[in-house]
Amino acid sequence: MKQAHCIYQDNEHRWLAIARDPSKPGYIIDTNEYVIVDGEEALLCDPGGIEIFPAVFSALSAECDPTKLAGIFASHQDPDIISSLALWLEFKPDLKCYTSWLWQSFLPHFGGTDSTFVPIPDPGMTIKVGGLELQAIPAHYLHSSGNHHLYDPKAKILFSGDVGAALLPPDQNGLYVEDFSRHIRHAEGFHKRWMGSDRAKRDWCERVSRLDIDMLVPQHGGIYRGADVQRFINWFAALEVGVLRG
């Protein structure tokens, strides 16, 4: 069963990570969902697929009042990111879904109406949650052609979608990256294959290096903390991407 772990708290400002689901069948990729709460409002980042909705909903409800959910942030359009949209809307029909403008007419195939979607322009935008001003950071072509990450300058946390993702073996399922060198082996193949543009990657690394980040939280695998954040950015900058093998 998935569980919500509080990874950051400052009074009413919290980040919850809903991660690791041992009861999930092996043929479905494991995903991390993140909830950003500030006072009476919450935002759910990459809520996941239809099949894991009950697990995510119950984990979220155990730690936070789900009626506080004001919006959903979808980093991109993949089914493991946002195919549960109709179910979240079933629970709360007035939810807003923030996603790249590119997917505005594609995501309604998963659910929602014209009023559900708030298109994020290519350069990104500010998303308000409670008293927070979160920044949607462009990450186009990493891996989706319309892709954003979400930065919380107060918590110094960057939700990085598929960037930083690792496909971990069952015996290495810790919430945080504890041994970078050991961990990154499980991220290498994924990044080489899924990140299609070297130019986009270098641009992202340069921009993100300038941000003050304590935690880089990806949609799959462990969370990078402290020095491991810059270690990851450096590793990614040097990695050859957009290749089938090698």
Partner: peptide, 18 residues
């Protein structure tokens, strides 16, 4: 959708607001 939501509610308990 109703059945999946019902399953989510079953796992969370009926006391969940909303």
């Amino acid at each position: 959708n109703s059945a999946i939501l019902a399953e989510a509610i079953r796992q969370s308990g009926d006391g969940v607001p909303g």
